[in-house]
């Protein structure tokens, strides 16, 4: 593999294009933050919708940071596979722990062993 990878060999012009992208992302992050806070003051009646919208905006902001500031949009395969594994274990941890919450001993024990 030769070292012709995108941002390892930027010339001045590429960097200037990148700077414009960074400033655009900066603007998008500010707008996202204002939207999230604005939503709080508007009082959406449903708590579930509030949570979904807030996390949706947060995820978009996080993806912007990861893709552009952390250059994940144009990265080596090695890092993608590393992050795929991380995502898998992260999701497993979350799902297992939340699953455990809905699976207390009272649901799985025989009636004779419950309580007391």
């Amino acid at each position: 593999m030769t070292d012709s990878h995108g941002h390892d060999g930027h010339d001045g012009h590429d960097v200037q294009a990148a700077v414009r992208k960074y400033l655009f992302v900066f603007g998008a992050l500010l707008v996202g933050t204002l939207l999230t806070v604005g939503m709080y003051y508007v009082h959406i009646p449903s708590v579930v919708i509030t949570i979904i919208v807030a996390l949706f905006i947060a995820s978009i902001k996080a993806s912007l940071v990861a893709c552009y500031f952390m250059h994940l949009i144009d990265e080596r395969k090695m890092i993608y596979s590393l992050l795929l594994a991380t995502a898998f274990f992260f999701a497993s941890m979350m799902v297992l722990l939340i699953w455990a919450m809905f699976d207390p001993p009272s649901l799985t024990l025989l009636p004779a062993y419950q309580g007391k």
Partner: peptide
């Protein structure tokens, strides 16, 4: 060091809404 810094920013992007707003 920048990658670390962006990660710290990324964590805050989730922390802020869940702790302050939800």
């Amino acid at each position: 060091s920048g990658l670390f810094w962006h990660f710290v920013d990324l964590v805050w992007i989730f922390l802020f809404p869940i702790l302050y707003l939800l």
